[in-house]
C-alpha cells in the first residue's frame, strides 16, 4: 500500500466508514454495554444540575440534621437519599453527579491537551527526522520509563494545588504516550516514497503534515486518547485521594472518596463506596470501549 490515503478517501464517505466501524464494534456485547455506560455517565454529568435533587455545594441548602443518613432514608428535604448523605448532610447521589462532572472535565481536558501537545511533538520529530527526532524521542522514552504517578507528584509538588495545576500535571505525565504513538505511525509513513516525492515539490510543509502524516497516525491516536482519558480520570482521583488534587470546594470523585474514607472504618461505607463505584464503572467502561476500538481499528493485534 504505497498510495496516499487521501486518494482512497473519496471512495468511501465518512458515513459508510462510520457504519463499517459500528458494525464491527457491535460484535462485542461487552463493548456495547460499556459504551452505554459511558454515554449514561456523560449524560448524567452534563445534566447534573437538572438531574440531581440537590446542589451539594450550596452550603445553605445543606442541613446538618441530614448528616450521615443511610441509603434510602428520607431527609429534611422531603426526598429519599437513595445513596445516603455524608457528614455535612450532602446527598451522595447529587455529589456523585457533580463529582463526575469535575472528573470528566479534568479527564477530557487533560486528555485533549495531552493529545494536542503529544501529537505536535511526535509530528515534529517525524517530519524533521535526524537529530531533532533523536533528541525528542530520547526525552520521550526517558519520560515513559518513569511512572506517571511519579511525574504527577513532582509537578504537583512544583506547581501547587488547583484545577489548572492538576491538568498541567496530568498533561505532562501523559503527553509522551501520544507523542510516541504519533511518531511511530507518522515516521513509518514518512519513509515511504510518495512523501519523499511530495517533499521535493514546493508544497507547503503543512500539506505533508496534515494531509499525509497525521491521517496515518489517527487510528492509533484514537485508541490512546480513549485510554488516556480513563487514565487521567483515575490519576486525578488518585491525586485527589492523596490530598494533592482538587480542594474540597471543587470536589471530584477522588475527593469524595477521600472525604468518606474516614467513615469507612466506622461502618458508614456509603460515603466513599458509592462515589468509588461510579469511578470504577466510568474508568472500566472507557477502557473496555478503548479495547474494542483498538480491535476494530487494528484487527491484527487482537489475539
Amino acid at each position: 500500500m504505497s498510495h496516499s490515503p487521501v486518494l482512497a478517501l473519496p471512495a468511501e464517505t465518512g458515513w459508510t466508514r462510520f457504519s463499517n466501524f459500528w458494525s464491527d464494534f457491535r460484535q462485542s456485547p461487552v463493548a456495547v454495554a460499556a459504551l452505554t455506560v459511558v454515554v449514561v455517565v456523560v449524560l448524567m454529568a452534563v445534566l447534573a444540575p437538572y438531574v440531581a435533587p440537590q446542589d451539594p455545594y450550596n452550603q445553605e441548602a445543606l442541613d446538618l440534621f441530614d448528616a450521615r443518613l443511610e441509603p434510602g432514608e428520607v431527609g429534611s428535604g422531603g426526598y429519599v437519599h437513595w445513596l445516603g448523605t455524608d457528614a455535612a448532610g450532602r446527598d451522595i447521589f447529587s455529589a456523585i453527579l457533580y463529582g463526575l462532572r469535575t472528573s470528566l472535565i479534568v479527564g477530557v481536558m487533560a486528555g485533549t491537551l495531552a493529545l494536542i501537545l503529544g501529537t505536535t511533538v511526535g509530528l515534529i520529530a517525524a517530519y524533521y527526522g535526524g537529530r531533532v527526532e533523536a533528541l525528542i524521542m530520547r526525552i520521550i522514552d526517558l519520560q515513559l520509563s518513569l511512572p506517571a504517578i511519579l511525574l504527577a507528584l513532582v509537578l504537583v509538588a512544583m506547581l501547587g494545588q488547583g484545577l489548572m495545576q492538576l491538568v498541567a500535571a496530568l498533561v505532562a505525565a501523559q503527553y509522551a504516550y501520544f507523542a510516541r504513538t504519533t511518531h511511530g505511525a507518522a515516521s513509518a509513513e514518512r519513509r515511504k516514497d510518495y512523501i519523499e516525492a511530495a517533499l521535493s515539490t514546493p508544497l507547503p510543509a503543512r500539506h505533508v503534515l496534515f494531509r499525509h502524516l497525521l491521517p496515518n497516525a489517527l487510528p492509533p491516536l484514537i485508541v490512546v486518547a480513549t485510554v488516556q482519558v480513563a487514565n487521567s480520570i483515575a490519576l486525578e482521583a488518585t491525586l485527589s485521594f492523596l490530598g494533592l488534587g482538587l480542594p474540597l470546594t471543587q470536589p471530584s470523585l477522588g475527593s469524595l472518596i477521600s472525604n468518606g474514607f474516614q467513615f469507612l472504618l466506622s461502618g458508614r461505607y456509603w460515603i466513599s463506596i458509592y462515589p468509588g463505584i461510579a469511578l470504577m464503572l466510568t474508568v472500566v467502561a472507557i477502557n473496555l470501549v478503548g479495547d474494542q476500538v483498538r480491535n476494530v481499528l487494528n484487527p491484527r493485534r487482537s489475539r
Partner: peptide, 29 residues
C-alpha cells in the same frame, strides 16, 4: 486482569479494607 489495571488502586485498597478488615475482620485495617 483487565480490572487489575484499569481500576484505580486506592479504590481497590478501600474495598479490601472494607471487606477483609471491617466486615470479615481477618486482617487489621
Amino acid at each position: 486482569s483487565v480490572l487489575g489495571f484499569s481500576v484505580p488502586s486506592f479504590w481497590v485498597g478501600l474495598l479490601l479494607i472494607m471487606v477483609f478488615a471491617v466486615e470479615l475482620g481477618w486482617f487489621p485495617s
